[in-house]
Computed example of a mutant assay.
Amino acid sequence: MRETIMIRRFVLKRLLTGALQMLGLTLAVFFLVRMLPADPVSRLVGLNASPEAYKQAQRSLGLDEPVMTQLLNYLGIGSDSGLLQGDLDVSWVTNAPVLAEIGASLPITLELLTYSFAVTLLFAVPVGVASAANPGKAVDKFVFFYGLFGGSQPEFWWGLLFVLIFFANLGIAPAPLGMISPLLQAPPRVTGFYTLDALIAGDFRAFFDILHHLMLPVLTMVFVLSGPVIKMVRQSMIRAQASDFVLYANAAGLRRKTVTRYAMRAAIAPTITLVGILYGVMLGGAVLVESVFSLGGIGQYAVRSVLAFDYPSIQGIVLVITAISLLIYLLLDILYAIIDPRVVYT
């Protein structure tokens, strides 16, 4: 009973901390984008626009008002629309709701990352455990070399290399032209995740074609991400195997599989933390892979928004990615507390 109460307090504390972080980031992003040495009005109306046209565009964007008034309007304080009402404003470039544009691009990135991290864990955990079980031997040396080699070059370079090998030379991968073949019709949008929407529609031809198009992007991400994950699993397993309870289990004559399972439970927490951090980082950092394979994810949308000085889109992207990252970290904290209840008392 006492442990349940402590876990609830732990979760509430994390929720309060996350809410304060979101508030601070909202204010920071709002003011920082307006401190950029750029004039979004001039970009929209052109450098040769008349003063009247410039003022009219400035008024339509709401940039003619004091900064604090702009902030109150953005937050939705004293108005019917704003951030507090779940409205991320309208893009200055496309005149479309920012929330709708993010909803169209974010699932692509989430789908790519989810598959990539799932494959990474399926590959990295057994390899890391095998490496820790044979320190200094051939497997361990290969893992060390692979970790350095896989993470030493940027992911877009590996993506281009895989396109050259598997598409141009071997012909076993599709052209990097998006999530689905241009000759097929995309499944009706339900969740925004192409594979799930194809299964919901019962379109298995589109489903397997989407998986085929995800093959190289996922391979690129796995090749880059598996290196640090393998290293973390290896180091955590070595520390766990040197701990007192594992030494006692070995001395008690327990089977090797049982001892390894005990050690893995102690070693899995740092690996989960690393995976969560990498997932949050790659939400905005997968833009190069998305660009190589023309996926149209949230990273590409963010780059277009920054280049266009589209303040509402920039603010919306940062807030959404931050909210997802904080949610991931909260889930990690809860999972960490389940694995090791001692953390709720710290």
Rank of each mutant, 00 (worst) to 15 (best):
G316A: 07
V318I: 10
L113K: 05
V90Y: 12
I5G: 11
K231R: 15
L16V: 12
A323W: 03
F245R: 09
P188I: 15
G192T: 03
D203C: 11
E3G: 15
R43C: 04
M237L: 06
T258L: 15
S243F: 07
L84E: 05
Y194V: 14
Y262G: 03
N95C: 07
P341W: 10
E111P: 02
V233W: 00
L283Y: 02
S91V: 05
G128F: 02
A175V: 09
L225V: 12
Q315D: 06
A132N: 01
I180G: 00
R2M: 10
Y279V: 02
R234T: 07
P40M: 13
L327T: 09
G159T: 02
I317F: 08
A201R: 09
A201W: 04
L283E: 00
I321V: 14
G299Q: 03
M6G: 09
S243R: 05
S60W: 13
R2Y: 15
A266H: 11
T109Y: 11
D64P: 04
Y262I: 12
L283G: 00
L20S: 09
V11W: 04
M237C: 03
R256P: 05
E3F: 15
R342Y: 09
I108H: 10
G147Q: 06
S294K: 13
K141N: 07
T346W: 13
I238R: 11
V190W: 15
V29R: 01
N48K: 07
G316M: 01
R14L: 07
G151R: 10
M237D: 00
Q185M: 14
L121C: 06
I317D: 01
L196R: 10
L214Q: 04
L274P: 00
D87F: 12
Y54C: 01
T17S: 15
S181L: 03
G299E: 01
A266V: 03
P217K: 03
M6C: 12
A249M: 04
A168Y: 13
G86W: 05
L75H: 08
G18T: 15
I238E: 04
F144L: 10
S243L: 04
P228F: 08
L216R: 02
L88R: 10
N95S: 15
L84C: 10
Y311E: 00
Q58H: 11
G253M: 13
S50Y: 08
V33L: 08
G316P: 01
P312A: 06
G285W: 04
L47V: 11
L12P: 04
L32Q: 13
P341G: 10
L283M: 09
S105Q: 12
S50H: 04
D89W: 11
H212F: 12
T346L: 11
L307K: 14
L199T: 07
N134T: 12
P51C: 08
A337D: 08
I321E: 08
L99M: 11
